[in-house]
Design a protein around this nucleic acid. Structure first.
Length: 872
RNA sequence: GGGCAAUUAGCUCAGUUGGUUUAGAGCACUACCUCGACAAGGUAGGGGUCACUGGUUCGAGCCCAGUAUUGCCCA
């Protein structure tokens, strides 16, 4: 049968993926083996695969497949996140296209649309992962709004509320006065705009003519001022601290306070404090216990606190108040100023910081174990530089605002029975709420209760992911959670270290008293050639599925992993996938070569025997390195090691060594040993390139039932023979010397040469040298010869007789060049050795090495000089 | 503004407690090559005053201080 010249991935991939599924190899149930568990960072349910997912999930698959081969019970749990904000936005947009406004729908109607959308688009990304070869246990697919999962989210909310960790409080949110909703920080775009800085003076109360001048870009908020603040060490204003000033227009009396927050060099060094309309002012207000005066209506017009400006839009008011200040002599001056202003991503309205009532989780105590167990390496970070960032955040952890003004998500289980802010109880259902109320002596009916309108922050459900995918909250200590938890490795992006990783650690210790995972591997951001983050809006991200179609899943997997060390950004270019495809093709052709040989029973040639002995050691040497790279999560390095082992050592050296002449047969022993090497190489590569390796595993030999590479045993290490390895590397150098000679003298590879070695001792690998150097004879003798090209390897001289060689000049130049290099080298060594303090201060061994280098160089130099004069 | 990283070949990165040839790899580049597995290939080759300035040391890519640039996080 004719084997195609290039590897054709498409069919092979589909064939093996369905085969693996049919054999249920991805599915895991608890048993006696050691568990190896990975939970997928759940992508947004409506998302489609992008390059970031590609990187992230390929790494997970590599880890999972290798663990499976190491004999562990590997379990990779897939699933999706409901992603409240992103998904709700998509649904709202889709409805708008159909002419439906969210505000016209009831909550139930909206959710019905949302679930429809989810059912339609929810599976896409998971199907895409299958194309990539992801060996997820699909029977365990979870969604953060599944019934059981939601139950655990609500249970945790109720539990934390009972523990006194959840409270309601006022917080500054980003208010969009056009959409009439709060938006998340991620949805606020900051832009630089040209505005004006107004200098306004406030009279110190009780003084004749003593004023404090502040600078502000928002004079309309003067009506909400509740203090003036200066730096405590600012001598200009020291006399005013503790006194009060009169706010212009409103005439209210407010205190002058001192705090280091104020930058004395900015503006006038006096800062007006409006706690209701600026986040920093709000913090200061809390610190100094200042009142907050909320000036605005939800649509951005002024309310009753705006006095005669009531009902006027905030920007109109800014103009009018500026002129009133000027008329009344409060405006000292105005100047041009560039500042950053937040705009709503969706409506482009200027965001108004606004105080609102939200639910909070108090974090300080909860976060303590999560900090300790990362700092002491119970949970390891790769790379560990992220421990710093983590610590910084955890030591300054703020309370977590867990409520969102949305419908898509887990509705907060708080039931209001009256108009007051505290007229509520927290319970799983309204019926339970009634019971609780009854026990408090309040008689109510279900119809009299209203549930809190808000839903929980998405992360409030995803922080339970490693627990709730095994129902660890709703069914504590069930066999699955006991077996699979703690999970082993988490692969994720550093951007969500706080949103997600830290909180999973917190939840792990709070609810299971144990860490959620042992290692966290942080991937980088996938960037394009210009260094820009790949994103949909920029349109600079290739579609991973297109790439797979173009280069094969194996090729793409290799392309994305070949240069992505943990924690580093990955500048991606499709040429890397090309490299992956080329590699697959190289392997394919190695297989074509091996499979094409005719086998005969005859004695194994000496050079083949030597080749086998060497490659055995070489492979073990690489295996040691590969295992060690894996242990350190150096995935790219492990892949590179295998890449070089296969391409350079196996294909370029080993196969060339054992290759029979054209249409010559191979002996059965060598073929058998070669096939075994090939199998092992495929095993080492399998985690990275699962499809071609499974294909060749089966092509190399006839396999029994379930003899599949995916569940084969990872090769064991046998101690490499260091002597064989160093002898062979010497042979490689000699061969390179011969090739070099051929190159410079323009002698074709097929022309046989003879080689004279000035040495008595024979090398055990001479047969390989003869074959690979294409030598007609190899002579070892004690004396050097004339009229020959000479090169030196490890102090031994090698001569190739010239024959009718013409290019003496070229030969001379080569020698001169080498003399120049050796002299420079010698000078450096001798410089060291002539330094008395080096000889006295350095360890004996180091000095001895230097002396040896000097002796070698001197010998080489003498040799080169004599060669040169012989050429004259 | 505060904090944390990084800076080694054209690109992406190694360089393991300071001492194995005057720094390595992959890709890219250059030259030559139908060489009976593979031109998606082979062979050979070029390319770096390790960001800069000082310091410690017999010895610095590695340790220390400062400068510059870049990136990330927080405000």
């Amino acid at each position: 049968m004719e084997i195609p010249k290039t590897f054709v991935p498409g069919e092979v991939e589909n064939k093996w993926y369905s085969y693996w599924l049919s054999k249920n190899y991805f599915h895991s149930t608890p048993d006696d083996r050691e568990a190896y568990t990975v939970v997928i960072p759940p992508p947004n349910v409506t998302g489609v695969l992008h390059m970031g997912h590609m990187l992230n999930n390929t790494i997970q698959d590599v880890l999972v497949r290798r663990a499976r081969m190491l004999g562990k019970n590997a379990c990779w749990v897939p699933g999706t996140d409901h992603a409240s904000i992103a998904t709700e936005a998509k649904v709202v947009q889709k409805l708008k296209l159909e002419g439906i406004n969210k505000t016209d729908l009831t909550r139930e109607e909206f959710l019905r649309h949302a679930f429809e959308w989810k059912d339609k688009h929810g599976g896409i990304i998971l199907d895409q992962l299958k194309k990539l070869g992801a060996s997820c246990d699909w029977e365990r697919t979870h969604f953060t709004m599944d019934a059981e999962y939601s139950k655990s989210v609500i249970a945790v909310f109720i539990d934390l509320y009972k523990k006194g960790k959840i409270y309601r409080g006022v917080r500054m949110v980003n208010w969009d006065p056009e959409a009439l909703t709060a938006v998340s920080d991620e949805e606020v775009l900051y832009k630089e705009v040209n505005s004006r800085l107004y200098h306004v003076r406030y009279k110190i109360e009780g003084s004749e003519d003593d004023w404090l001048t502040i600078a502000t870009t928002r004079p309309e908020t003067i009506l909400g001022d509740t203090a003036i603040c200066v730096h405590p060490e600012d001598l200009r204003y020291a006399h005013a601290v503790g006194k009060s000033v009169i706010v212009p227009i409103s005439g209210r009396i407010v205190p002058v306070i001192a705090d280091e927050y104020v930058d004395p060099t900015f503006g006038t060094g006096c800062l007006k404090i409006t706690p209701a309309h600026d986040i920093n002012d709000y913090e200061l207000g809390k610190k100094f216990n200042l009142p907050s005066i909320d000036l605005f209506n939800e649509n951005g017009t002024l309310n009753a606190h705006g006095l005669h400006y009531e009902g006027v839009d905030r920007f109109e008011c800014r103009k009018r108040i500026a002129s009133e200040l000027q008329e009344k002599g409060y405006l000292v001056k105005t100047e041009d100023y560039i500042n950053k202003v937040g705009f709503s991503e969706r409506t482009n309205a200027v965001i108004e910081p606004k105080l609102s009532l939200q639910w909070f989780l108090s974090m300080k105590e909860l976060a303590e174990p999560a900090l300790v167990h990362v700092m002491n390496d119970d949970i390891k970070f790769f790379p560990d530089k992220f421990k710093n960032t983590y610590r910084h955040w955890m030591e300054n952890v703020k309370d977590w605002c867990i409520s969102r003004q949305l419908w898509w998500g887990h509705q907060i289980p708080a039931w209001y029975f009256g108009p007051g802010t505290n007229d509520f109880v927290v319970a799983e259902t309204a019926v339970e709420a009634i019971e609780i109320l009854k026990s408090k002596g309040i008689e109510k009916e279900v119809s009299q209760l209203t549930q809190d309108e808000d839903v929980l922050d998405t992360w409030f459900s995803s922080w339970l992911w490693p627990i709730s995918v095994f129902n660890g909250i709703t069914q504590p200590k069930n066999p699955e959670i006991s077996y699979y938890y703690p999970t082993n490795d988490l692969v994720t992006a550093p951007e969500i270290m706080f949103f997600w990783v830290a909180r999973m650690i917190i939840a792990g210790y709070e609810y299971l008293g144990d860490l959620p995972f042992k290692n966290v591997y942080y991937t980088g951001i996938v960037r394009d050639k210009l260094g820009r983050k790949m994103s949909k809006s920029l349109g600079n991200s290739p579609d991973p599925i297109d790439l797979i179609n173009q280069f094969g899943a194996d090729g793409v997997r290799m392309g994305i992993l070949i240069s992505s060390p943990a924690g580093n950004d990955l500048p991606f270019d499709t040429s890397q996938c090309e490299q992956g495809r080329n590699f697959a093709n190289k392997i394919w052709n190695a297989y074509r070569l091996v499979s094409g040989w005719e086998v005969r029973a005859f004695e194994q040639p000496v050079h083949s025997k030597q080749a086998v002995t060497w490659f055995e050691s070489k492979m073990n040497e690489s295996l040691i390195a590969i295992n060690s790279h894996f242990d350190k999560f150096r995935i790219s390095d492990a892949l590179m090691e295998i890449y070089k082992l296969i391409w350079d050592d196996f294909c370029s050296w080993y196969l060339e060594m054992i290759k029979p002449g054209y249409e010559q047969p191979i002996d059965s022993k060598t073929l058998e040993q070669t096939t075994q090497f090939f199998e092992k190489l495929m095993q080492l590569l399998h985690p990275f390139m699962p499809f071609i390796t499974e294909e060749l595993w089966h092509a190399l030999t006839t396999r029994g039932e379930s003899d599949d590479i995916i569940i084969s045993n990872w090769p064991l290490i046998q101690t490499p023979d260091a002597h064989v390895l160093s002898s062979m590397s010497e042979v490689f150098e000699v061969i390179s010397g011969i090739r070099n000679f051929r190159k410079t003298q323009n002698i074709a590879q097929k022309v046989k040469l003879s080689l004279v070695v000035v040495s008595d001792a024979s090398n055990a690998l001479d047969a390989v040298l003869v074959k690979m150097g294409n030598l007609s004879e190899l002579k070892r003798q004690p004396s050097k010869i004339d009229g020959a090209h000479c090169f030196i390897v490890k102090g031994i001289e090698y001569y190739i007789p010239f024959g009718e060689l013409i290019d003496v000049e070229g030969e001379r130049n080569k020698i001169l060049e080498e003399i120049k290099y050796t002299k420079g080298f010698l000078a450096a060594v001798q410089g060291k050795l002539s330094n008395e303090r080096f000889v006295a201060g350095a360890p004996e061994q180091v000095v001895a090495v230097e002396r040896q280098k000097e002796a070698d160089a001197l010998q080489k130099l003498a040799l080169l000089e004599s060669r040169l004069s012989a050429l004259k």
